[in-house]
Amino acid sequence: MRDVDFDAVRTFVTAADAGRFQDAAAEFSITQQAVSKRIATLEKNLGVRLFTRTSRGAKLTIDGQAFLPHARDLLRTRERALASVRPGRRALRVDVIGRRLAPADLLRDFHGAHPGIALDAVTLFDADAAVDAVRSGSIDASIRAVTMPGQRFPEDVRSTRVYDEPIQLLTGPAHELAAARCAAPADLAGQRIWMPGIVPGTEWAAYYEALAAAFGFTIEVTGPDFGVEPLLDTIADSRTLATFVGERTRFAWPADHGLRRVHLRDPTPVYPHSLVWHLDNPHPALAAFRDHLRSGRFDHSGAGTWTPS
């Protein structure tokens, strides 16, 4: 079939189910002659006869019987394709950086508050890719650390700060700070903060570079990045290595690792997550998502916190 006439396919399925062209005509509020014309065009396009006329109505030929399940599949596929891009029917697509990180947790929290809204979480590489995807419409929103709007964003893109996430120090049980409930960022001078997953040029690399410069310590990125589990294994066995994690970062490790989360205070470094969206995005769930994130329940900003200038 060079060109699919979906009206003809739908008419064929309806006529096949009803067994009469007259019933199909009534279903679509058209004449019986129009039904016959649609079926004839479809038969010409396919190169086969789909119906034979009988005294009792229309009966499927062998080719008609063979085509019927595929015609149903064709209509279902078309409906799914339309629903995937139809605001109000498709899922709200949100970029969350990583599925173990705070943005994914915020999206799960929104789903708990609005279980009837369909969601689709995607993971893009960095803020530039996220802004491009927001502009193209391939995603509806992104939760990212971004520079001030106007310094970087096109005019049709908006952002608002939605969550300042406290940063914590993660150590093994033998580390000198493992027994501390809290530490100041200035106390980390001379410590080996190992973060092999940092990629130069990304927004998270810029954040941790600014953090290290502000408090006089060095973040090491040497060595291959084999993923989260090898990182945790190394930290658990080390007396000298530690790493940073967000307060809402979801990690699970074996009980014998004995890893410790140490709160940072005076000041508390917070990672600034912003919601990014297109000004003209029509998805009806986007406003509900913005309102949910701006409700104040995620606010950790204010006195005693630090973010890059």
Rank of each mutant, 00 (worst) to 15 (best):
M1Y: 04
M1V: 02
V4E: 10
A8D: 03
A15H: 06
G19R: 08
R20A: 11
F21T: 06
Q22V: 12
Q22W: 14
A26H: 09
E27Q: 14
F28A: 11
Q33T: 12
A34L: 05
A34E: 00
N45Q: 14
R49L: 10
F51E: 05
G57H: 06
A58V: 15
A58P: 04
G64W: 04
Q65Y: 01
Q65V: 06
L68C: 01
R80S: 05
A83R: 07
S84I: 06
S84M: 11
V85F: 07
V85S: 10
G88H: 03
R90Q: 10
R100F: 03
D105E: 09
A113P: 02
A113G: 02
H114Q: 13
L119E: 01
V122H: 00
F125I: 04
D126S: 05
D128M: 10
A133P: 01
R135H: 08
S136I: 11
G137V: 11
S138N: 11
A141V: 04
S142M: 04
A145T: 08
M148N: 12
G150P: 14
R152C: 11
P154S: 14
E155Q: 13
D156V: 08
D156T: 14
D156H: 14
Y163A: 11
L169R: 11
G172R: 06
A180Y: 15
A180E: 11
A183S: 15
A183M: 15
A184Q: 14
P185V: 14
D187M: 13
Q191R: 15
Q191M: 14
W194L: 02
P196E: 04
E203V: 05
W204Y: 15
W204C: 04
A206R: 06
A206D: 08
Y207P: 05
Y207N: 06
Y207F: 13
A213Y: 05
F215C: 13
T218C: 13
E220P: 09
V221Y: 00
L232P: 04
L232C: 05
D233S: 12
A236I: 03
S238F: 09
T243P: 06
R248M: 07
T249N: 03
R250W: 09
R250D: 06
A255L: 12
D256L: 02
H257Y: 10
G258L: 10
L259V: 10
H263R: 15
L264W: 06
R265Q: 13
R265G: 11
P267G: 13
P269S: 11
V270M: 02
V270W: 09
P272F: 07
H273K: 04
L275E: 00
L279W: 02
N281S: 04
A287T: 03
A303P: 10
T305I: 08
T305W: 05
T307N: 01
